[in-house]
Amino acid sequence: MMRGMNAGVSAIKAIAINTFKEAVRNKILYNLIFFAVLMMAVSLVLDQATIGQRNKIIKDFGLASINLFGVIIAIVVGISLVYKEIEKRTIHPLLAKPVRRSSFLFGKYLGILLTLVIEILLMSFFFFLLVWLYEGGFDSYLLIAILMIFVELSVIAAVAIFFSSFSTPVLSGMFTFSVYVIGHLTSFLKDFGASSGSAIIKQFTHFLYYVLPNLERFNLKTHAVYHLPIEIGQLLFSILYGLLYIMIVMLFAVLCFERRDFK
């Protein structure tokens, strides 16, 4: 029993590290260079602006960029890495070994998270360096915003894995991107539904509100840039909400994946 458990953990770890290696060796992290160049270009352009404004814009733009680059990685890697395993049949020798399908999916997911962590760490390092150069100090508010960006990306990566456990990459990409966009609008949709007067629309928007992740919960970018107060209870609740959402989505992904026949 213990041996089986150890083998299970060892398998998840091996798959996660292999997924990370794939992302790195297939040069997915190269987009970091693009991020660095973009940030430098923006800061140069803003050199003319007044100091107070310039720093805020750099912070705003930096956080938005970390978020955007992270979302692209989460969607692209999340979808392509699982699909590629199935399409290229690299998954066949894997699943013929004592590897549970759930372990495979969790391993893949953790590998994607590891890729995202490294990506975010490197982007943040460059971002903080730039802020330090302009401001001469470290802004811890930005750290909280970045942590929440990571939680958001983790949710998106789980959604991407879920769709790719039963669908093609193009469809999964579209679905995940839709979830990302609508996920930022759920509160708005709920209010819209409530004020529409139509019972059907109200039910539909309520359905979306509860089924799709409320990604705005993780958006603390404005708080961080303008140093608005952040309630620790709300913060913890948002993290917990993200974790719970990930667990539920992954559970559904496993359920879809468990009974799948491989061609």
């Binding site: 089986g4 292999n18 290696k21 794939e22 060796r25 297939n26 290229k88 049949r89 690299t90 066949h92 020798p93 013929a96 070994k97 004592p98 590897v99 549970r100």
Partner: peptide
């Protein structure tokens, strides 16, 4: 799943992680 501890499998036209 424990049965697979005793199995070795080579798929048809195998394709492995080419970056390893």
């Amino acid at each position: 799943i424990s049965v697979r501890m005793k199995i070795g499998f080579l798929p048809e036209r195998p394709y492995f992680y080419d970056y390893l």
